[in-house]
Design a protein around this nucleic acid. Structure first.
Length: 189
DNA sequence: TCTACGATCACCT
DNA sequence: GGTGATCGTAGAA
């Protein structure tokens, strides 16, 4: 994957507005190259999480643990963790080092070698072959990366409440989930 | 050490 | 619509 001009540069991830980045990731291509097999899907659904003013975030209020440590890395890294003992969830770490913010990729539209369904955060990691071994991987120069979409014909972007974070009280009402309204691959309308 | 629970999914009624 | 699977992590003791 050397010198691919479409790969999003680190500066894309280092920006300080994680909500903005969550929106920008829609329509981009998430690509993995594992075991010599290239897999690619278009991102159609994302959610933003921030350590600031967001109880739903694992690193809320700057909480640093072995698991959340990844979110404190510099933007442009993968944050992968196990949920419900079964599902691997893939996030993109954003902002500068020591600021814990990330974007959860919730659904992709299969493009290459992802015949499996991928309309949910647990399913897309399975379709792409992502697991917790990829936690802390760089998204710039390793086997997982995100490419720009030169066509960039997105259609309508819809904002909604995030899924599965009711425990977060008022923060559960934040409109920090974004999806492409025309995509049939969105996990839930 | 021990216990509780989750950024989900598939299958059941 | 309701619920069980399943296990690493976090927090308590």
């Amino acid at each position: 994957m050397m010198n691919n001009p479409l790969i999003l540069p680190k500066s894309f991830y280092l920006r300080e507005d994680v909500v903005e980045i969550a929106k920008d990731l829609l329509g981009k291509f998430l690509v993995t190259n594992l075991n010599g097999e290239l897999r690619k899907g278009m991102i159609v659904e994302t959610e933003a999480y921030s350590q600031y003013d967001d109880k739903a975030c694992h690193a809320y209020n700057g909480k640093r643990t072995k698991r959340t440590e990844t979110m404190f890395l510099e933007g442009g890294h993968a944050y992968v963790y196990l949920c419900y003992g079964i599902h691997h969830l893939f996030n993109v770490v954003t902002n500068k080092a020591d600021v814990a913010e990330a974007v959860l990729i919730r659904a992709i539209e299969p493009i290459e070698c992802c015949n499996n369904n991928s309309n949910g955060p647990g399913k897309l990691t399975k379709a792409l072959g992502i697991n917790t071994l990829h936690d802390k991987s760089s998204l710039i120069d390793s086997s997982i990366w995100i490419e720009a979409n030169e066509e960039d014909k997105l259609g309508d972007v819809v904002a909604s409440k995030r899924i599965g974070v009711d425990y977060a009280g008022k923060d559960a009402n934040k409109l920090w989930r974004f999806y492409l309204s025309e995509s049939k691959w969105v996990s839930k309308k």
